[in-house]
Design a protein around this nucleic acid. Structure first.
Lengths: 306, 306
DNA sequence: CCATATCAATAAGCTTGAACTATGGATCAG
DNA sequence: CTGATCCATAGTTCAAGCTTATTGATATGG
């Protein structure tokens, strides 16, 4: 089975197989008849099989030719489809996009993915949730194309663009002395056991979070770490301590836990979209564009949740 | 999607995609590097998509390239398989063979097909049973490649080669006067109602069958026609009449029916293998050869059943 | 039965384009 | 800065596919 076979052979073969007439087939292919005869002959030599039985008056497919015809047609069809697919992937109309995000941003992410999938129905979106550090690592090693992170440091290999910001609030047990009001001075929590998201999940986010406590003169001693915000809230409700959390994870509180606004200038937790610097692939750009359209449309609502 | 794309482009693309290095890929393809660069560039222009992102120091697949790579590999693999298949069909090692046969020759056919399938496991054998006229018609219109018929006329578009011959015997109800012996003169059946296979199923076979009755001076009046030998035998067993049948359909007789050898020189029914004249396709020839090997091996046994 | 038409194969010359050699330009190591 | 590496570009060459002209074979019409 020589390497010398080319698609030309298949195209010519199919034309003759359909016309069963070298003259007409050649006309259809816009070539002269002898060229066609020659190429078919060459194909038969390469495959070492007679594909047509021809007399000077008629052309018929042999068994081998009849077997090969639908397969050749199929091959050309597949090739066209594959080339088309490659083109669509190249233009960002199809393909696969890996989005890594922090669990506490699920709402924001799902909203944007819904919008993106509406624009690009042929793009398969793969979701990966994790901590900010995991998201950044996935971006770095190429496992993810889009990252949603919280309060990340500037890095020279990753672009960050802010999606939204939300203030921190305190969550305390309902039997806490401060729970009679709906707001609290940070310093009033100085003696309570602190339950926080682990710093290892995202140092910058942790530091932003705890800065407000340090500003209030509190020596931050984390009594309990927990890598799931909802679990932290449950612990608070159980009276194990208090926490400072981004607003969005406190929208649904169980009985026994109460949200308190923090007095003074609000400290904000910012959520960013992260991409590899210089990654200007169409799909990535399209996701950014779709995401921005959501931010624009939904701006009022986003502000309200801050 | 221009017509100008050729398999060369796919082969070259795959080489570069695997090596990620134009120099090494070119070496592997036994061409010079500039030719490779040129062809890849051409491919990208045809598809109108960048398949590689190259700097002067590195070559990487783009998303489109990464999508296309496994598909291109698959296409080349399929093509090789299809060409191989066509070659095997051409050499008669694979493909499909349509065998049409008369129901009363099932035993002979199955024996030969078993042998043929042993030699050519990749050939799909399609079976079609029917009357002799149907078998010949199927051959004629190309629906069948091999036909097994009984006592057919010579025709100039069909070759017949004898497979076996069997004598005719009489089958009578056990309460028939002649049933006390195990043989009978044909003339002794002159007054019995005759049940026979329809003449329309195969005129020659019918005429051979009934000739022996006419030779015995009987005016052949078929009382009942039935197009299934086993049903005919059941009718005989039920006392509805007598029949003259090829030996092989009388090997298993129900209670109530008895086989009688016919006195005098035996009249033979001959079973032929029929093929289109000039059909020298390898599969047909291979079936004939396999069939002959069975006839040779099993000759004694065949003789015994006559 | 010969003349004519049809159709694939063959022959010979032409033309296209793939591949070659040589070179340039960019990037990285020392 | 120099040398090495590697892809791109430029110009040339030659194989191979295409064209025209012709042949040979087979069917059709007068």
């Amino acid at each position: 089975m020589d390497q010398r076979i080319e698609l030309r052979h298949l195209r010519y073969f199919l034309a003759v197989a359909e016309e069963l007439h070298f003259g007409r087939a050649a006309q259809r292919l816009n070539i002269a008849q002898p060229a066609l005869s020659q190429q078919i002959r060459q194909l038969e030599k390469i495959v070492d099989v007679e594909l047509f039985r021809r007399t000077s008056r008629s052309v018929r497919l042999t068994d081998a030719g009849a077997t090969f015809q639908p397969r050749a047609r199929d091959l050309l069809g597949r090739l066209a489809a594959d080339l088309d697919e490659a083109g669509r992937v190249g233009r960002g109309e199809a393909g696969r996009l890996d989005v890594a995000f922090i669990t506490s941003a699920t709402a924001i992410v799902s909203e944007r993915i819904r919008e993106f999938s509406r624009c690009r129905p042929d793009v398969q979106v793969k979701l990966h949730d994790g901590f900010t550090v995991d998201v950044l690592a996935a971006l770095e090693r190429g496992t993810a194309d889009i990252g949603i992170v919280r309060d990340a440091d500037e890095r020279d290999d990753i672009d960050l663009s802010p999606l939204t910001a939300e203030r921190f609030v305190a969550v305390v047990p309902t039997d806490h002395p401060a729970a009679r009001a709906d707001h609290v001075e940070a310093s009033a929590l100085a003696t309570d056991p602190l339950i926080l998201f682990p710093r290892s999940a995202g140092a910058q986010a942790f530091d932003v979070n705890t800065q407000l406590l340090r500003d209030a003169g509190i020596d931050v001693q984390v009594v309990q770490e927990c890598s799931n915000w909802h679990t932290i809230i449950m612990f608070v409700a159980a009276g194990l301590g208090v926490t400072i959390a981004p607003y969005s994870v406190t929208t649904l509180l169980p009985a026994g836990a109460q949200r308190l606004e923090l007095d003074g200038p609000p400290t904000m937790s910012r959520i960013f979209m992260a991409t590899r610097r210089g990654d200007n692939r169409p799909l990535v750009q399209a996701f950014i564009a779709a995401s921005e359209s959501v931010t624009g449309r939904g701006h009022n609502r986003t502000v309200r949740t801050q």
